[in-house]
Design a protein around this nucleic acid. Structure first.
Lengths: 258, 258
DNA sequence: CTTTAAAGGTATGGCCTTGTACCATTGGAA
DNA sequence: TTCCAATGGTACAAGGCCATACCTTTAAAG
C-alpha cells in the first residue's frame, strides 16, 4: 500500500519534475475577500471600463455581481476613496466616481517607476506576458473563425474607428476596449475574463510609459489589419496580425528585466 | 457630472454590448473556501496526479500549499471520505488514500450519464472547450518555440513512451500527464494552472465514455507527431498537431449538446 | 519491547464575512 | 413645496475560517 505512494514520488523524480502538483496546488484564494475586491474594482478602472469622471455601478449591484456582501464591498471602496482613486457622493444620483489619477512621478520619471514595478512583479512578468499572448492569439483566431456578423461586425468597426480617432490620453483606454471586445467575441467567457485580469496588470505597467504619436499610428495600422482579418474570417492572418501587434509591447517590457 | 455616467451607458448600448463589465464583474469567489478546496482535491484525483491507491500529501502540507487552514482542509477531506473517494488512515505512514471509483452506471449506460453531465454544464461546455483549445494550442506552440533541452526533452519522450505503453485503464491518466507537462513547459505557470482546471472538467466528462483501442492508437500517433514537432522547435506544426488532436474529443462532446 | 517520528484528531478564541434591517442624504418629479 | 426613489451609511447577530496548541495513533527503527 505504501509502495504506491513511494513509487509515484520516485517516478516524478526520475522524470525530472520537482513538483508534480504545481499546477493544482496553488492558493485557493489570493488574500482575503476584501483585497480581491479592491483588485476587481481597480480592474474596472485600469481597463478603462469606467472612465475618469464616471461612476461605478451602485454598491448593491456591485456586491451582487461580485457575490460578496455590501459590507465587504464598502471596505474596499473605503480604501480606494482614502487612496484618492474614488470620490463617493451620497444621495440620489450619487455614487463612487473615478477621479483623475494624481500626476504621479510615473510618466515623468523616464522609466524608473516602470523598472520598479517590473522588478516588483518578478517572475510573474514573464508569466503575464506569455499568458497574455496565449489568450490574445487564441481569441483573435477564434473570433475570426466565427466571423462576426452584422451587429458584432459593426461593433468592431466602430471600436476600431473610435480607437483610431482617439487622443493620446484616451488611446490606452480605447485600445483596451477593442482588445477586450475581441476576447469577448471569441465566444469563451473564460478567455474574456482571464484576458481582462491580465490586461489590467499590463496596463498598470504601460501607464508608466509615455505614449508617442508614431507608436500610436503604427499600432492603429496593426489594428486595422487585425480587424480586417477577423471580418474576413481569416483565422491564421488574425493570429499573425495580433502576434506582430503584441511583439513590440512585450519586447519593451521584457527590456526592464535588467 | 451625471452625463458622463449616462453617456458611457448609452455608448455601450449603441455599440450593442449589453454588459460592458461582464468580463470583470464575476463572482470574486465561487462558493466558500471549503467547496473550492473539495474541487482542488478532486482535481488532483481527476487529473490522475495522485493515482488510485496512492495517498495525498499530508494534511499540513496540503493546507500550506492551498493557503487554507488545516481545519477547513479537513472538512473537505471529510466530505470526500464520506463520498467514498478517499480512505483516511491514522498514524505514521497513514494519510488520505485514493480509492477506486465505485463501478458507477457511467461507462455502462452508453452515454446517458455523459448527456446528463453535459446538460448540467449547460453553456459552460462550449466555454470549456474553447478555453481548453486556446490554452492547449498556445501551450504547444510556446513549448515548441522554446524547444525543450536535454532533461526536459527526455521527460517529454519518457511521458510519450509511457503513454504509448499504457493499458486502457491507465491511458486517460497518462494522456493527461503528457498534456499537462506540455502546458508546464510553455513557461507560463498561469497557462499550466488554467489548463489543469479545465482538463479536470473535461476528464470528468470523458470518464463517462468507454475508450476503444482504435481511438487509443490514433491518439497515440498524434501524440508522437506532436512531440516530434515540439522537439523540432516547429511551433506552427505543434500547434496544428494539437489542433487535430483536440478536434475529435471536442466534436464528440459537442454532439451531446442535443 | 521500547522509542520515536510522522501522520491524523480535537479544542479554543478571535477575526473575517455575511444577511438583514433600517437610517440619512440628495436631487428630480409631481 | 412636497414627495419619492435611488443612493450611500450604520448596526447587529450568526456563521465561516483561521492560527495555535495539544492529543492520539501507528509502524518502522533501534
Amino acid at each position: 500500500m505504501i509502495e504506491n505512494g513511494a513509487s509515484s514520488e520516485a517516478a516524478a523524480q526520475t522524470a525530472g519534475d520537482a513538483d508534480p502538483y504545481a499546477a493544482v496546488l496553488r492558493p485557493v484564494r489570493s488574500g482575503n475577500t476584501f483585497e480581491e475586491t479592491v483588485e476587481k474594482v481597480l480592474q474596472l478602472i485600469r481597463l478603462g471600463l469606467v472612465p475618469v469622471g464616471d461612476r461605478l455601478p451602485p454598491e448593491r449591484e456591485l456586491a451582487d455581481r461580485l457575490q460578496i456582501s455590501r459590507v465587504t464591498l464598502r471596505e474596499a471602496l473605503k480604501v480606494l476613496q482614502d487612496a484618492g482613486v474614488l470620490e463617493v457622493r451620497r444621495g440620489r444620483y450619487g455614487g463612487a466616481f473615478v477621479l483623475a489619477p494624481a500626476p504621479s512621478p510615473a510618466a515623468a520619471s523616464g522609466g524608473e517607476e516602470l523598472r520598479r514595478r517590473v522588478e516588483e512583479l518578478g517572475d510573474r512578468l514573464e508569466d503575464t506576458l506569455l499568458f497574455r499572448q496565449v489568450l490574445e492569439l487564441g481569441a483573435a483566431e477564434l473570433c475570426a473563425e466565427r466571423t462576426p456578423s452584422g451587429a458584432e461586425a459593426d461593433r468592431l468597426r466602430q471600436l476600431l474607428a473610435e480607437t483610431g480617432a482617439a487622443s493620446l490620453e484616451e488611446y490606452r483606454r480605447l485600445d483596451t476596449r477593442l482588445h477586450l471586445a475581441i476576447a469577448e467575441l471569441s465566444g469563451s467567457p473564460s478567455v474574456a475574463a482571464q484576458y481582462a485580469a491580465v490586461r489590467a496588470t499590463v496596463n498598470d505597467l504601460l501607464d508608466c510609459i509615455p505614449l508617442l504619436p508614431p507608436n500610436l499610428q503604427h499600432s492603429q495600422r496593426q489594428h486595422e489589419e487585425l480587424v480586417d482579418a477577423i471580418l474576413s474570417g481569416d483565422g491564421p492572418r488574425a493570429r499573425a496580425s495580433m502576434h506582430e501587434h503584441l511583439a513590440g509591447t512585450a519586447a519593451l517590457l521584457r527590456g526592464f528585466l535588467s
